[in-house]
Every structure is written in structure tokens, then in C-alpha cells.
Amino acid sequence: MDTDVQSFAVAHLRRRPEALELGGFVAGFDPTSTSPYLNYATPLPGARPSGRDVAALVEAFRDRGLRPRLEFAPDAAPKVEPALRRAGFVTEAVHEYLVCTPSTLTPPPAAGFRVETPADDEEYRAIDAALAEAFAGDVVASPEGAARLRRVQDAGGAVRFVRSPDGGCAGAAMCSAPAGSTAELAGVGTRPGHRGRGVAAAVTAELAGAMFARGTRSVWLEYSGEGSRRVYERVGFRPRGTRLYLVLGKS
């Protein structure tokens, strides 16, 4: 599964507004944002980068005023981590990822609300605002954020949300367009006032089901804590591997 997840990461970055390939790495950049979560690199499966390759990657980030950063499944490219460590990269995080397949997907019981697909710009803006509130400052609502959500849907991925009683968004998530046999589900967030009602489980299961209906063999995600992990496991996600986040150490 590590190779599938890593192959997805490569394909996902190649879709970025600006993508570079150099020395066994793919770097994806979004000129509308300096967020490290939108500007990072990943290695090709099996990559064996030289010191010169790593230096060229670092320079590509510095040219854009960004801190060099990578996300990858280390077991899919075991020669990469040592090369990056020698160049001064340090661990930002290690995340376990979970995988769901059609045979493990377990939709939750009906919870008295519908999971919907956004239909217009107003709904994309409402979703973007709700996710900004859900993540408590890690992301900021913006026209660019709403536009990115629409691009996910228009590019073959999926965005789903639960409407709040005031007509806005109670919670939402997205799934990037599949690459190869898998797709990444991300951005699962529920506004604080709507938590505990099953919103996260509902949108997660709906997105996974939508991908499976298109022929995708698996959907994977990372979780942020044991509470969210339990939500994902209840709808059929199972532990399958880890992803490593590295950043260049401060000089």
C-alpha cells in the first residue's frame, strides 16, 4: 500500500498550478498561498537522490521564499530519508494513515441530515468558512480557498457537506481525484457547535462510497487524534502505514 499512496502523492503534486520535477522529486506549488500544506515536495517511489539532487530541490523552494518541506511514505522510497537527513532536514511529524476498501466500508446509521454536493459558489464559500472554523486558525477562509474546493470537485475529486439549520455548512470534507488505484480523503472538519452528531462519519463514508462507485480500489487518509481515528475506523478505515513529514532545519 505504501507504493500506492506514494504514487498518489506524486500524481497529486503534478496537478498543482506549478509543478517541478527534479532529481527524483516532484515539488508542487500554489502561487496563491505560502501555506506549507500547499507547497511541498515528494519523491518518486524508489528514488535514490544524490546530494546534488537534494540541493537543487532546496534551491527551488528558496527561489520562492518557502521553507523546503516534504511529505512521503518512507517505505516506498527508503533511500530518500537518509539523503535528506544528511542535508539537514528534520522531522516535522510522523502520521499513521488509514485505508478503506469497498469490502470494509461501513456507512453509519442515518443521523437525520443529508450529505450534499455543493452546487454554487455560495456553498463553496460556506464550506471554506466552516472548515476554517473547524480547524481553529490552521486555515483561513478566503476566496482562494473556496476556489480550491471547487477545483477539487471539477477535476474529478469530490466535495461533500452537511447543511446547518441556518442554511450554511455544519461540516464537510473532500477527496482528491484518484490516481492509479487510490485516492486521498482530507479536510474532514465539523464546526464546534455541530460536533457529536455524526457529521464527520457521514461525509467520510459518503466520499469513500463516491470514489468506490467510480472504480477506485481504496481511499486513504491521515487522522489528527484518537477521537478522529475512532470515527474513521467505525466507517471502515484500517491502519496500513506511516507518512513522514520533513522540513529543512533552521540554519
Rank of each mutant, 00 (worst) to 15 (best):
R214E: 15
G193Q: 12
A183G: 05
D30T: 13
R195I: 06
M1A: 15
R85N: 06
F113V: 04
R163C: 08
A172E: 06
D75S: 06
P49Q: 13
D154M: 09
V80E: 11
E81Y: 03
E18D: 07
D121Y: 00
G112P: 06
P192R: 10
L20S: 03
A110W: 07
D138V: 01
T117H: 04
S228H: 08
R191E: 07
P49I: 10
A60L: 13
G209Y: 02
A9K: 13
P118K: 10
L221W: 12
R64W: 08
A55Q: 14
D128R: 05
V80Q: 12
K79T: 14
F72Y: 15
A208S: 14
A119V: 15
L244Y: 03
A55T: 07
A47M: 11
R229H: 06
Q153I: 05
N39H: 09
A129S: 11
G180S: 07
S251M: 10
F113E: 01
V54N: 03
Q153Y: 09
S251I: 04
E59R: 15
E92I: 01
M1H: 14
G209R: 05
R214T: 11
P49H: 06
A27D: 02
V139N: 00
R197G: 00
A210C: 00
A141S: 14
R214S: 04
A93I: 05
R163G: 02
A201N: 06
S164C: 02
V58L: 12
R214C: 05
R234V: 09
A126C: 09
T42R: 14
S218T: 05
F113R: 03
S176H: 15
D128Q: 14
P82R: 05
P45Y: 01
A213W: 08
P102Q: 09
W220E: 15
A126Q: 07
D2T: 00
Q6H: 07
E222W: 07
G112H: 10
P43V: 12
A132I: 01
P17V: 01
E206M: 01
T117G: 03
S33Q: 06
A87W: 04
F72L: 15
G227V: 12
T32E: 15
G249T: 04
P143K: 08
V115N: 03
H95A: 12
A130F: 02
R16T: 05
T190Q: 08
I127H: 04
E18Y: 00
R85F: 09
T32I: 08
V80S: 08
G189E: 08
F61M: 14
T104A: 10
